[in-house]
Amino acid sequence: MVSPPGAWRWILLPVLFLLLVSVPGGHVGAYPERPIRMIVPWAAGGDTDAIMRVAASLLEKDLGVPVVVVNIPGASGTAGAREAKKAPPDGHTIFSVHDYIHTTFYTGVADINYWDFVPVCLLTSTPSIVAVYGRARWRTFRELIEDAKRRPDEIKAGATLGSTSHFFLVLIERKVGSRLWRYVSYEGTAPRMTALMGGHIDVAESNLTQLDKARAGQIRFLALATEKRHPSAPDIPTLREFGVDVVYAVNRGLMVPKGTPGSVVARLEKACESVARDPVFADAMLKQGTDVRFLNRGQYTIFLRENDALNKALAEYVGFKRR
């Protein structure tokens, strides 16, 4: 073995470098041409993740390329939104989004809103429920509201402050026209339900995924925020039945970065529609307490605009200021 002179290194490196650069090769083809990243701005195992993983596997079937779920949790979902916004607008990155995109904007957490993306479709809608501690003394929603009006600031409501679970309860306060709750910060559905089961909070927003806990008597569902009673739980009255006109749900859809070509968006929209019509998807969503609700990009754009105005008003009502 001979020890090479120092110059060896300087020959070796460029050769190595050339070798490498020539390895991967890109070519232009019809969309989609390679695996698609679906950015889920929350951790694996959550509601959004569970819904979107089902959607991804069905999108894959329609598009013919792998659709890989990429979880980018952090900073109340804004880390994922930021990455999605930065991604090249070629349809190979899609962003799964829900109402948090409006709330984080108006509470000043993020400076990204729905208008930074091109809407593709709305896929699902998960109706909200007013839930109380399983051994609470309120049997009906009316009893709860009357008690809350009598002693505002005493009944403890768990919520992710400045997000959907908070705004839902604020919306009720606004419709009832009175302060009702004392808010306690519990971020995420799982910690909130745990605290509700332990009686550390009295009220919280819940959804039909937690039906099992209600059936077991550990939490109690008082009212559902839908227009009509829900087929999976016909025994739960709606808020409207109590004269509180609140219809509220967490709505999940898909978007792509701004600048994505129209033909690509149209292809994705078509795939999205076939997912929404797939009985496998409907069945999976039913078991997740979620309604399939398809809106095409035109309808979804209008929906987003209206939803945005509502969230803006709610954020101002609560007292958030955009920075």
Binding site: M1, V2, S3, P4, W8, R9, L12
Partner: peptide, 12 residues
């Protein structure tokens, strides 16, 4: 690994 190891052709 080149920098940390012996400076021989074999190692390179």
């Amino acid at each position: 690994s080149w920098c940390l190891g012996p400076k021989t052709v074999r190692h390179a």
